[in-house]
Nucleic acid binder design. Structure first.
Lengths: 160, 160
DNA sequence: CAAATATATGTAGTTAACTACATATATTGC
DNA sequence: GCAATATATGTAGTTAACTACATATATTTG
């Protein structure tokens, strides 16, 4: 029983622990970029790297690609525009759309970052390649929730 | 290379994905409590359950126990005080300390919640007991960071 | 035993995501 | 081809954690 209750508490504590974990990694990431003399915030990575790969995207498609709600993307884009790392233009076919792309400065920055990614990748691998791989665990949990939500699973037990 | 860069992106995306994950579980948790006719917010669990176990605690020791920064605990305690689920009194020995405990109403609520925990525990087990167990993965990553931080690990590669 | 240090609590402000709502433009279907 | 619906973007406000700072009290040490 004791263990069970701790698990119930543990479930709710996952959020906090992982937030703290990623927060710490993000801060360390910032320091690594600094060590390479690069003025860059880790939270910019998903947007910039996606634009690096795909050259031009609308706000919503970019949001879907990186898995953020669109207002989050908009606020990141605002910062990046201020930094002159991206620019945007109207889509001539569908005028609702705003097409976003890297500036020359943005592209230059991204290319100077590649060696840093190598370092980050190696350090990440060291940390997460434990017996229960964190990345894989997240994927698996997301997949099981996709299949049947937490609530749906709970309902089965409630009905009993 | 492609895979590596996706990993670098993935690392930074962990934060978001897990936040969303826990957010969803928390919302479903709220609905489960509702299904049982219990007016309860999942985020209250760690504080209330700890007080249920330990009866009386100071703000800082409670924060340590649940793994939150103390201002977060204080703000939860404010809500719980408003709900009349907890009350506090001064420690007569060390007057800096505020001792927090459940009210009778709080204790009653907690005892009605036990059957709900059973359900939550079962649903959680279904979801997280995959090949790579999420809870265990988190523990392992926290342990490897404890041993050597992300930054320290990265520094080894930078120096090369 | 007084000064320096440590600990406990509290407040204010930040962060990085979110949801809800508003508006403009495009697409669909009768 | 117009009305209803869907999609794209944007703004405002929320959430739940955080850090930094302030103050009061306790403990330690020279």
């Amino acid at each position: 029983m004791e263990q069970n209750v701790i698990d119930a508490s543990g479930l709710l504590a996952i959020s906090t622990r992982l937030q703290r974990l990623s927060d710490q990694i993000r801060k360390d990431g910032l320091l690594i970029y600094k060590a390479f003399g690069i003025d860059f915030q880790p939270k910019w990575f998903p947007v910039l790297y996606t634009l690096y790969k795909k050259s031009t995207m609308s706000v919503v498609s970019l949001s879907e690609e990186i898995g953020y709600a669109h207002p989050s993307t908009i606020s990141l884009l605002k910062e990046l525009e201020k930094e002159k790392l991206i620019r945007s233009k109207k889509d001539k076919v569908d005028t609702r759309k705003r097409l976003v792309e890297l500036t020359a400065q943005g592209k230059t920055l991204l290319s100077t970052m590649e060696p840093v990614w190598e370092v980050i990748i190696k350090a990440t691998a060291e940390i997460t390649n434990t017996e229960n791989n964190l990345m894989k665990a997240i994927n698996e949990v997301e997949a099981s929730l996709q299949e049947k939500s937490f609530l749906q699973r709970a309902e089965v037990y409630i009905k009993k």
